[in-house]
């Protein structure tokens, strides 16, 4: 089957940002600029993640999504701070196609059942942030800040019992480092996961991504930095709040990362089916 390449766009104050291990974010620019570039270059899905789940930030994300949906005709999911059915309804009404839940599910797994009963399994995705602490693979929430003490594999079982159609597993330690996915972890996660599985955290060397698909049989990968740094344009937007040092000093010759099409071509040549 054709594997999906998803781009993950972390949003803070209406700006595309990127951190390392879910921390220390750096401003990269206008999220709508990036999502349109990704669509034109055959991205399979776009995932907007609202890293500050305040009401103010939710409203800014609504604006980004509304603008996006006029030009981008691939599946768009939104996560971060979705606590109730009204919020999910609002998102679907303004151009979103899939809802991603994290903290609210940990607080109350019945919320997942409620969403599935209305929207069906394939519209509801659960993002699980995980890190190994003293030999135990644990579940975190609030963008990696809060340790729930829950065991990852028990939590996957609970989530699946709510008939959720997709699980995105974020490996906190690898996230933002471009050093490669943790193959051992995703092999174990795959064994426990019958529904769609998305690997997130660590996308970097293309050979490792091919390996991940072959050895772990994940259905999709979620990629942020690797694409962001390739498509980044040197800009000096005066309205960007926060840490702009990087953007101001970015030189186009330092281009890093890889284009979506280049990655897809490589995967195809490695025997992995992708849409091209």
């Amino acid at each position: 089957m054709y594997k999906r390449i998803i781009s993950k766009l972390d949003i803070k104050n209406g700006i595309l940002v990127k951190g390392i291990s879910l921390e220390g974010v750096r401003n990269l620019g206008d999220p709508n600029y990036f999502s349109k570039k990704y669509y034109d270059d055959l991205i399979d899905e776009i995932h907007f993640h609202n890293i500050i789940a305040s009401l103010y930030d939710s409203n800014i994300v609504f604006e980004i999504v509304q603008k996006n949906s006029k030009k981008v005709f691939v599946n768009v999911s939104v996560g971060g701070g979705i606590q109730n059915v009204e919020h999910a309804d609002k998102l679907l009404r303004i151009g979103v196609d899939k809802i991603v839940v994290n903290s609210a599910a940990v607080k109350n797994p019945n919320f997942l059942k409620k969403l599935v009963d209305i929207y069906g399994s394939s519209t509801i995705s659960v993002n699980i942030e995980t890190a190994a602490i003293k030999g135990k693979q644990l579940v975190f929430v609030e963008t990696g800040r809060v340790n729930t003490g829950k065991d990852l594999f028990d939590w996957i079982e609970t989530v699946q019992s709510c008939n959720v159609g997709e699980i995105i597993v974020t490996d906190i330690f690898s996230e933002g480092k471009n050093k490669g996915f943790n193959i051992d972890l995703f092999q174990k996660v795959r064994e426990k996961t019958d529904v769609q599985l998305v690997a997130h955290g660590g996308a970097g060397p293309k050979e490792n991504i091919a390996d991940l698909f072959k050895k772990c049989e994940v259905d999709a990968v979620s990629i942020a930095s690797m694409f962001h740094y390739y498509y980044l344009e040197p800009t000096k937007p005066s309205n960007l709040k926060g840490s702009n040092y990087f953007l101001h000093n970015f030189n186009k010759n330092q281009k890093q990362g890889m284009s979506i099409i280049e990655l897809k071509k490589f995967l195809k040549s490695s025997g992995i089916n992708v849409r091209l």
Partner: peptide, 12 residues
Amino acid sequence: KKARNVPFIGWN
């Protein structure tokens, strides 16, 4: 034998 993950989400 397990042959496919359900739901199916993706391009075909």
